[in-house]
């Protein structure tokens, strides 16, 4: 069998790795609020107080909610439980569409109204050729 030194080194390594993993786990757990990139409408409704700082709101663009009037775009971000109205003026990314994911960066005026300063499109994990998508849509 292996000599004593090898066993001790293995034990030392195991203990240091275990400690490190635990430390990192606790740090990430404590920082969870900051690690998340955006908040969902439900999480925003559950906030105790609204901040005036810049935050990010993410979810789905509600179907048939995009309304464009002159230089402003209004739409609704939903997580299928809660909804928040968003207003934005500027250029939206190509993938910004109804029924697709979106992340809006801006200021929360109140719990139903979000003024976006930047719009990012969040696409999902599905990769499908157009013809296949068309035939899927027909079903």
């Amino acid at each position: 069998m292996y000599n004593k030194k090898v066993k001790l080194r293995a034990l030392f390594l195991f203990l240091s790795i275990a400690t490190l993993i635990l430390t990192i786990f606790l740090v990430l757990k404590a920082l969870e609020e900051n690690v998340v990139y955006f908040l969902s409408p439900t999480e925003i409704k559950n906030l105790n107080e609204t901040t005036t700082e810049k935050i990010r709101l993410g979810g789905m663009v509600k179907d048939q909610s995009i309304k464009i009037n002159s230089d402003k775009i209004n739409f609704i971000i939903t997580d299928f439980k809660n909804e928040i109205n968003v207003t934005y003026s500027g250029i939206v990314p190509n993938l910004f569409q109804e029924g697709k994911g979106v992340v809006a960066e801006g200021i929360l005026r109140d719990k139903n109204y979000f003024k976006a300063e930047k719009i990012l499109a969040k696409h999902d994990e599905n990769y499908i050729p157009p013809e296949v998508k068309a035939s899927l849509g027909e079903k």
Binding site: V35, F38, L39, S40, L120, K122, D124, E125, N126
Partner: peptide, 18 residues
């Protein structure tokens, strides 16, 4: 966590979405 990056598409244990 909620990320801007999309979840993985190639999965061993669940359906592959590519």
């Amino acid at each position: 966590w909620s990320t801007l990056h999309q979840p993985s598409s190639v999965n061993i244990f669940s359906k592959t979405t590519i």
